[in-house]
Simulated scan of single mutants.
Amino acid sequence: MKNAFLTLFAIAALSSCAKRPDAIAPTAFPVETYANLECQEINTSLTTEQGTLAALSAAQSSAANTDAVGVLLLGIPVASLTDGDKEGMIAVSKGKVQALEAARIRKGC
């Protein structure tokens, strides 16, 4: 019984850990959002969003590392419990990057 409890606790703790940035799927973002932009505006927005994604990804990697250590030492995903998980923001940012890249291709930029 004790082993079953420990196993269930470990599974629960690990399932709530912050994901690695590369494991986060992008949110669907309509390309039409950027249809009215000129090439210069698309390129500027893309550069800005790529910077945002890089910063969020760095924070998410740190949160995932913190969670791994927290689960190992304390049995709890510390970063996920303290708003360190940026999964939603990364998904949106990835979706924006994909939409901007598609818009750039459509415009021939």
Rank of each mutant, 00 (worst) to 15 (best):
P30E: 01
T82G: 03
A25R: 02
V31I: 08
A79H: 07
V69T: 14
L73F: 14
T82S: 14
P26C: 01
K96F: 06
T7H: 08
P77M: 12
E101A: 06
C39W: 10
V97Y: 00
V69A: 15
S93C: 12
G70L: 07
S16D: 06
V71N: 04
V71I: 10
V92M: 12
K96M: 09
N3I: 03
I24M: 00
L46I: 13
P26F: 08
A63I: 12
L100W: 10
F5D: 09
E49D: 14
T7P: 00
E87P: 05
V92G: 05
L14S: 11
I42K: 02
A10R: 15
A12H: 02
C17T: 04
G75E: 06
A35E: 03
A4N: 05
T27S: 13
A68V: 09
Q40C: 02
A91K: 08
A35S: 15
A54W: 05
A59V: 02
T47Y: 07
L53K: 09
G84E: 10
E32D: 13
P21C: 07
N65A: 14
R106L: 12
L46R: 07
V31T: 15
F5I: 15
A23E: 14
Q60H: 04
S15V: 03
A10H: 10
T47L: 09
L37Q: 10
F9S: 11
A64S: 15
G108C: 10
D85E: 06
A68E: 00
A12E: 07
L100I: 13
E41N: 09
A12V: 14
D22E: 15
L37G: 05
K86G: 04
S45H: 08
L72P: 08
A28F: 09
V78F: 13
P77H: 12
I90L: 01
I24C: 00
A103F: 11
A68S: 13
N43V: 11
F5Y: 11
L46Q: 12
Q60T: 00
R20C: 04
S93Q: 04
T47G: 13
L8M: 12
T48S: 15
T66L: 15
R104P: 01
A103V: 04
K19D: 11
A68G: 14
L100K: 01
L37K: 08
T7W: 08
D22M: 06
K86T: 05
K19N: 14
L37D: 03
R106S: 13
E32L: 04
S80I: 01
C39D: 05
N43S: 13
D85P: 07
L53W: 04
E87K: 15
A23R: 02
L6G: 09
A59T: 00
I90S: 00
S62W: 02
N3P: 05
T44C: 04
P30W: 03
S61N: 07
A55M: 07
